[in-house]
């Protein structure tokens, strides 16, 4: 069961990573990147690293996405 969870998370991780690379719209890429970070966060949590998971959620999925969105809003105006 536990291994299955890992496999599902890793598959989703790779799929979101590919989706980020393929996204044409920058804002969509930023949001997909946040989803990628969330998968990574769950993976860390499941591997027993809650500190890293918390960092990934707060920095990777949170602040970085917000900063990306600010830049996209300022540049594609």
């Amino acid at each position: 069961m536990s291994e299955l969870f890992d496999v599902v998370l890793l598959t989703l991780l790779i799929l979101t990573a590919l989706a980020v690379a393929r996204a044409r719209d920058l804002a969509a890429a930023a949001i997909l990147f946040a989803a990628y970070s969330l998968m990574l966060c769950l993976l860390w949590l499941h591997r027993g690293a809650p500190d890293v998971a918390l960092t990934e959620a707060a920095v990777g999925a949170g602040v970085t996405t917000l900063l990306f969105l600010v830049v996209i809003a300022r540049t594609s105006r």
């Binding site: 500190d51 960092t55 707060a58 920095v59 602040v63």
Partner: peptide
């Protein structure tokens, strides 16, 4: 418990 300066910083900055 899990947590710390950088994580809190991201929450406050966010």
């Amino acid at each position: 418990v899990p947590g710390g300066g950088l994580q809190g910083a991201a929450i406050l900055g966010g």
